[in-house]
Computed example of a mutant assay.
Amino acid sequence: MKLSLFAASLLIATSTMAADTAQTPNVKLEGVKYIKMLGGALKSQLQAKMKEDKTGLTALAFCTGSANDITNEVNKKLPPYAKVRRTSLKVRNGKVNTPDATDRKVMEEYVASIQAKKFSPKDIKVVEEGDVTRVYKPLVAKAVCLKCHGTDLSPKISEAIKTAYPNDKATGFKEGDLRGVIIAEIKKH
């Protein structure tokens, strides 16, 4: 009796683990879909602002006034068990984008792979914590990003950043550096 009860428990546990393992690729694909929704919305509007004003001031004003609103709008379109957000090791807006310990660990892994020249911007990381799966996509600093996030900022950009973000840490990047990540968080449902 005890042996058959043990065998039944083992079978159930194995089935549950197999189901969780089978769900991980689907969760990853779902997370990437949500990441692309946010990334696409932000990128298209940011590119338009950069074309509109080569100084970067219009793009900075857009980020200051609209990036979090766009994130909130994308989240309203997601199922109730999912959300998407952005963060960085060097945040500009600490009120909404501060990383937690898991975010930091994943970003530090990306930084290490960049330094070891083993990095791919397509390296999607999946982290399971309790009933939440996080899907991470790295954001790499490109030349155009450096107008507002680089080392040689124009005086007008520097002043605008200081005014909008007095505690800004999101400068000093070089092309190819890890700028941050977009994260999809999906609760088991």
Rank of each mutant, 00 (worst) to 15 (best):
A116P: 15
T98C: 02
K2G: 07
K77D: 04
V127H: 13
L89K: 06
L146C: 06
L42W: 07
E30Q: 12
A164K: 14
F173G: 04
M107Q: 14
K43C: 01
N97C: 09
L38F: 06
G65V: 00
Q47D: 13
V144N: 13
K49Y: 12
G150Q: 04
A82F: 01
C148K: 05
F6C: 01
T163I: 13
K2I: 04
I161N: 12
K76H: 05
K142C: 01
D123H: 14
D53S: 07
T21I: 13
Q115G: 10
M50Q: 12
V84Q: 07
V144H: 12
P79N: 05
G180A: 01
D123M: 09
C145E: 07
I12Y: 07
N26K: 13
Y165S: 11
S120A: 12
Y165C: 11
I12T: 10
S15F: 07
A13N: 13
M37I: 00
V27F: 09
F119K: 10
D131L: 01
L78E: 08
C63S: 10
N75C: 00
L10M: 15
L146K: 08
P121V: 06
A41C: 02
D20C: 03
N93H: 11
K83C: 00
H189C: 00
F62A: 00
S66E: 15
T24R: 15
M107Y: 07
K105Y: 03
K95P: 07
L38A: 02
L11P: 05
V96C: 05
L46W: 08
Y34L: 01
T58M: 08
K117M: 05
P121A: 09
S158R: 13
K169N: 10
K2V: 02
S88L: 00
C145D: 04
K117W: 06
K162P: 13
K77T: 11
M17T: 12
P121M: 06
G40T: 03
P99D: 04
A61Q: 15
D69I: 00
N93L: 05
S88G: 03
L60N: 11
A61C: 06
N68H: 10
D123G: 08
A48Q: 11
L178R: 09
L10K: 12
Y165E: 15
A19S: 15
N26H: 14
A48V: 06
P166W: 09
D103L: 00
G180Y: 04
I157E: 10
E159C: 01
E52N: 11
K187D: 05
K90P: 02
D177T: 05
N93C: 09
A61M: 10
K76P: 05
T171E: 07
L29A: 13
